[in-house]
Simulated assay, not measured.
Amino acid sequence: MKKLNTVLLALVSVGMTSVATAQQTQVEKNDIYVGARMGAFSADPERVAIDNNAFRAVDNNFSTLATGIEAGVMLSEAWELRAYYEYLEADLELGGNAYGKNYGTDALYHFNDTVYAGLGVVSSEIGGIADKAIRATVGHRSFINDNLAWRIEAGGQKGTDEKYNEMFANFGLQWFFGGRDASPEPRQRPDVAPQPAQSQPEPQQPVDSDGDGVIDSKDNCVNTPADYSVDENGCVLYKNETLREEMLVEFDFDSSVVRKSAMGEIEDMANFMKEHPQLNITIHGHTDSVGPEDYNQWLSERRAKAVGDVMVKRFGIDANRVSYKGHGESQPRTMGDSAAARQDNRRIEAELKIVNRVPVER
């Protein structure tokens, strides 16, 4: 991927040029930033992608271009919390390309003003094959001015499902909100001429026009609803509320035909996706342990695809929002070889959740 190598060389050149003008601006607690990131991703030799309905091996020689955005907040002068999203463009062995995404969060610890390291979780998907991983990062950050910083990072990640071992390196620019003076000068209070004594007016009773418990002189949010809790500034308090939808569909022995009794379960998940169009779904197929392992892997993929087809063709979900993955007999839901245990293991599973910000009631 010559284009990738050219872009990365240009990024490193920009970073090295910025060193000459960098200054040691110290970050502060509650500093917030947004940024852009670009780098390379080295896929595991065992990672495959779906291309024209066939599994293709992904090239693992740092040939996957990763570009994206990030945002973070300084929890203290040493600890930082960051979230990011990357678009992936990967080379496939024997030619062709596959596309995907990375998204995750990191907790970073700063050893000093420039060097940091951290751990995080990331979801990586290339060519329709997704995997979650634990990611370790080391990096360097320097400020170009009080608000703009550049950083360079490298690290690795280990998958939790497929046990992939993968590496990455990237360069980023970050914009910190709120100007901070790297070496503030102390200011002296100006001299004020003494004023002649004046008679003091009678004190007035503080007024709370909207009855939220915060007087008008300190209330930054007027006319707040009476049934909502407010903070010290008179503004509505919010909390995070998690909405979750799960889908479990069982199958007959040696079958990938979706039972009629399962249509209600699938429709509930489809309605949840229609209410939250920003969500995509991955359907996971499973089998019992009866039969050859290769056959069970194929059957698990057929079951996951069969449920996905019902969501698309019967309940109107966009096909681009539905993907599937087979696990064969490797992830039993119930241990044992009884008829009941085998029935529990002939299944597909899927889960979606979303976090909404809702006001706190009194």
Rank of each mutant, 00 (worst) to 15 (best):
N271Q: 12
V290I: 15
I215V: 15
G104H: 02
S42T: 01
E46D: 08
M311V: 07
M311I: 10
K353I: 11
W79R: 01
Q331D: 05
G35C: 04
H327V: 10
I129F: 09
V207C: 05
Y164D: 04
H284E: 10
Y84E: 01
E77R: 04
A49H: 01
E301S: 15
G285R: 02
N147D: 05
Q204K: 10
R56Y: 06
K239T: 15
D44H: 08
K353G: 12
R259T: 03
G72E: 09
F168A: 00
G118K: 05
D212N: 14
Q205I: 08
Q198I: 15
D161N: 14
E293S: 12
K325R: 08
T224L: 03
Y116A: 13
R187F: 05
K101M: 14
T105A: 15
V355W: 02
D59L: 03
A49V: 11
Q188I: 11
A149E: 07
Q343K: 03
S300A: 11
P45T: 15
A306D: 06
G291C: 05
K260Y: 06
D219C: 03
A133T: 15
Y85P: 00
D254M: 15
G328H: 04
N60C: 13
G234M: 11
N147V: 08
P190K: 09
G178K: 03
E293K: 11
G127L: 09
V257Q: 13
P203I: 03
V358K: 02
N61D: 04
Q188N: 09
E349I: 12
L108I: 10
T334C: 04
A341R: 09
G172L: 01
E28K: 06
D254S: 15
G178C: 09
D59Y: 00
G118S: 13
Y87N: 09
N345R: 05
E329L: 06
E185A: 11
V14Q: 00
K260L: 07
R37G: 04
G96C: 11
A49K: 02
A36F: 04
Q204T: 13
Y295P: 00
E93W: 03
Q195G: 07
A226P: 04
P184M: 01
I134H: 12
V7P: 00
D91K: 13
N60L: 10
A43F: 01
M269N: 06
N220W: 02
R314W: 06
A117Y: 07
E245V: 09
V192I: 14
Q343G: 02
V27C: 00
D161E: 14
I348D: 01
E166W: 06
G159H: 11
I215F: 14
K325A: 11
L81S: 03
L8N: 06
F253G: 08
W79T: 05
E185N: 07
E329Y: 03
G156D: 00
V258M: 11
R346S: 02
